[in-house]
Design a protein around this nucleic acid. Structure first.
Lengths: 147, 147
DNA sequence: CTATCGTCTTTGACATGTCAATGAAAATCA
DNA sequence: TGATTTTCATTGACATGTCAAAGACGATAG
């Protein structure tokens, strides 16, 4: 079940697959120690980068590459924890606007340094500048392919 | 929330994060068209590579980097579909041995070419041989770090 | 204006993953 | 041997993600 890629490709793909599994899992584990899941952290940091720290669900979900359903579910749970809040969109009564609470921002601010340290320790610190450059180019090229 | 990596690192990490999200999701979607989830495919192909196409749960789970619980749950579902079977381990009455059924092997054999085509179309075909080599080295280095 | 159609978020049902507890059997050790 | 500890796979309860309604509202065309 193995011979339809060249041996070089085969080895590389195996290695990349392992990376795809292992790196997110390690970063997630580190984050859990800090009291947040990876999903929580993504939501908080994506929201914190938006001017005003508020965002309508539709665009927010698209930015995060999440389904609207997933974001709605997850946001409901985070709202119950007091990390974010939802309010009606004044411009479109169907819409919902999410914004970071002060508590949510505080939680993010507390977790961020540890998370970035983890990204360094588990990834960036082990790459040369040239490798970082190659990775960026390759990752962009692949991710930009049509869906 | 953004200024604790150098701009180069920041851009690269962003790109890699996007790749980590988007590539598995695309490959998974393609696989779904072929009737299998990514998890199903991993189980089948990992099992098919083992001599005799049978494997005890413990080592199997470790090889896949899955928790035993996850594998046990997933295997129960796949067994219900007739793709794999479980039997008692004659050497250790606590143990359980998983093996691929003929039906499971047939399903894998049918899905594999399409999946490999998808890996090519969505990934490998867009990399130069040098990039493939860099990726393999980097991915191995990162994945081999202590947990 | 109003009827239709499309779009919005949420919801519920279900699939999947995690975590802790279970019960059975092996390994260890006195 | 017999008691204790460890390891094994599975299970159940719960958290999370997916998919297909649902219901509310906006946009469009007559």
């Amino acid at each position: 079940m193995t011979q339809w890629l060249s041996t070089d490709e085969e080895r590389a793909w195996r290695a990349v697959r392992r990376l795809l599994t292992v790196l997110p899992s390690r970063l997630g584990r580190d984050l859990t120690q800090l009291g947040l899941s990876s999903a929580d952290y993504e939501v908080l940091s994506t929201l914190s980068e938006k001017p005003g720290r508020r965002w309508g669900l539709r665009d927010f979900a698209e930015k995060m590459q999440w389904s609207r359903s997933r974001l709605s579910h997850h946001a409901a749970r985070m709202e119950a924890r007091g990390l974010i809040e939802r309010e009606a969109d004044p411009a479109d009564a169907r819409g919902s606007i999410y914004h970071l609470t002060d508590a949510g921002f505080a939680v993010l601010a507390e977790a961020a340094p540890g998370h970035l340290a983890s990204v360094r320790a588990r990834f960036l610190d082990h790459l040369s500048p040239e490798e970082v450059a190659v990775l960026e180019r390759v990752a962009d090229r692949i991710a930009d392919l049509p869906d």
